[in-house]
């Protein structure tokens, strides 16, 4: 659940996959002022949305906000630029969700905040 101000702040990362590539090689999707190992120099990059699955699971017991779409796969993905991210897998038969499978990120609705709250969009992955 993200209220509208929290949600709006993350739009560049969630909608357009704007990321940072630090000189030490670390690639971050969330904004960082410094890499985990202390590098401050980076260039802004936009992730292509292509990557592969490092691990996955099928969630059968989600939190309430996702209970109507259960069961659903979630995966840790490494993009071709080296960024790591966690995303739901959509539009993919479960048997195709495997470690090493190639994926592409798409723009989807992540959740709705009840009947009257904002609609949260973001990235999900499709196995290609």
């Amino acid at each position: 659940m993200a209220n509208s101000q929290r949600y709006t702040r993350e739009i560049p990362h969630r909608f357009r996959l704007e990321a940072q590539k630090f000189e030490d090689g670390f690639v971050s999707l969330p904004n960082r002022y410094i890499s985990p190992s202390g590098c401050k120099n980076f260039e802004k990059i936009t992730l292509s949305g292509k990557g592969k699955i490092l691990s996955y699971t099928i969630i059968s017991t989600p939190s309430d906000q996702f209970k109507l779409i259960k069961p659903f796969p979630v995966a840790i993905i490494e993009t071709e630029e080296g960024a790591r991210l966690t995303a739901m897998i959509t539009d993919t038969p479960f048997e195709k969700v495997k470690i090493g499978a190639n994926v592409e990120l798409v723009f989807r609705k992540i959740m709705e905040e009840g009947h009257s709250g904002i609609i949260n969009y973001g990235y999900k992955a499709i196995v290609i």
């Binding site: 969330p30 939190s63 991210l85 966690t86 992540i110 973001g122 999900k124």
Partner: peptide, 11 residues
């Protein structure tokens, strides 16, 4: 990570 893990449905 609330914005980058939980937001995307992982428990």
């Amino acid at each position: 990570d609330q914005e980058y893990e939980a937001y995307n449905g992982v428990t």
